[in-house]
Design a protein around this nucleic acid. Structure first.
Length: 376
DNA sequence: ATGCATGAGTT
DNA sequence: ACTCATGCATA
């Protein structure tokens, strides 16, 4: 009980932010990420996506005021709008910070401009408000804890909840830019549409929470099928050589699969992981991988080479004669046994080490130590 | 799988 | 001061 509660709390603190797509904004990752990923398309996607998201939410909330001006409507306004709804009318524009402009502008420039960060708190607030009309604690806590099952929060639950809360409510927003299934004002906005198109985003396909979730699941299954670990994937990403895409940690891959990333983050990573997955499966299919050729498959996993009995016998025979064969000799042996030179070289190294161990154990006095005799 | 930490970029 | 995306270290 206590523990669970605690964990929940912690999670809330920590994960809540990233778990609720609704609120996050497109900010950029930091140092490492910037170096590796920022410069690439993914970052752009992220930006655009986030912008869109934000705008959508804003719109959604501000739908009431759709008549006013979408572009102008910012999350602040949206928030205000919500408030108005709840409370009955108040001043919508009370807060019209520069942010609003920013966001709007961003949308416009999304494709070309640098990443910006819209707003998020507002969104979350809005959502919260919407969810919790009572406005009791509009804080995040309520949402994560009470409404949703704490446990599920950071996992799928959170994602779904997010989706529902944010985009789902307004299908048009995230998923429907291009398609505009739901036909929301935001979606239809020419500006947005243009931005989306320009950015090359696939609103529905790429940003739909449902799609993201489905992809995450598929990704995990296929990844496992390939016999690749989360850590492997992270490392392999660097081999993809996608502009700006570097390696990622096991943590991040894990979070992606478990939907424990912010919506924007999910959107940014999806194309990258999708690219890896496709490449990995292609390579797996061809199954011919030169050790030298950069593979997106940790290659396949790092399989420890096993030397067949016959070859092993030969090696032992050679070893008996010459424990320290020269490079040339090793190459010749490798040639004869049809093994890679490096494999043979390592085998001899290991064999020598093994011998030392044996020797030392037999003659402890020599090494002065009982066990591992690496003394020499 | 996840708590805590870091660091960039914003506001 | 705060948000985010990530990573490290560890349960």
């Amino acid at each position: 009980m206590t523990m669970s509660m605690y964990s929940t709390t912690d999670k809330m603190k920590m994960s809540a932010p990233s778990c609720f797509p609704g609120r996050y904004s497109p900010s950029y990752r930091s140092s490492e990420q910037m170096r590796r990923c920022m410069p690439n398309p993914s970052s752009r996607l992220l930006e655009d996506a986030s912008l869109l998201c934000n705008s959508w939410s804003a719109r959604q909330n501000g739908d009431i005021f759709a008549g006013i001006n979408d572009g102008i409507l910012s999350r602040a306004e949206a928030l205000a709008a919500v408030d108005i709804q709840k409370h009955q009318a108040q001043h919508v524009h009370s807060q019209m910070p520069s942010q609003i402009k920013h966001d709007v502008m961003y949308h416009h420039h999304s494709m070309s401009g640098p990443p910006q960060r819209p707003l998020q708190m507002h969104h979350s607030m809005d959502q919260l408000d919407m969810l919790d009309p009572t406005g009791s604690m509009t804080t995040l806590a309520p949402i994560s804890e009470s409404p949703l099952t704490p446990t599920h929060q950071h996992l799928h639950g959170s994602y779904h909840s997010m989706n529902h809360m944010m985009s789902h409510h307004h299908p048009g927003t995230l998923s429907g830019h291009t398609a505009g299934h739901h036909g929301h004002s935001a979606v239809h906005h020419p500006v947005i549409t243009a931005a989306v198109a320009a950015a090359g985003l696939h609103p529905d396909t790429d940003t739909d929470p449902r799609e993201l979730e489905a992809f995450a699941e598929r990704f995990k299954q296929r990844r496992i099928k390939l016999g690749v670990t989360q850590a492997d994937v992270g490392k392999a990403l660097a081999n993809l050589k996608l502009p700006g895409v570097g390696a990622l940690s096991q943590s991040t891959i894990c979070r992606f699969e478990s939907l424990t990333l912010s919506h924007n983050n999910m959107i940014a990573l999806k194309p990258i992981l999708q690219a890896w997955l496709e490449e990995a499966e292609a390579q797996a299919k061809n199954k011919r991988r030169d050790p030298d050729a950069p593979s997106v498959l940790p290659a396949g996993e790092k399989k420890r080479t096993s030397i067949a009995a016959p070859e092993k016998r030969s090696l032992e025979a050679y070893f008996a004669v010459q424990p320290r064969p020269s490079g040339e000799k090793i190459a010749a042996i490798a040639e004869k046994l049809d093994l890679k030179k490096n494999v043979v070289r390592v085998w001899f190294c290991n064999q020598r080490q093994k011998q030392k161990r044996i020797v030392s154990s037999v003659t402890p006095s020599m090494t002065g130590h009982g066990s591992a005799g690496f003394g020499y």
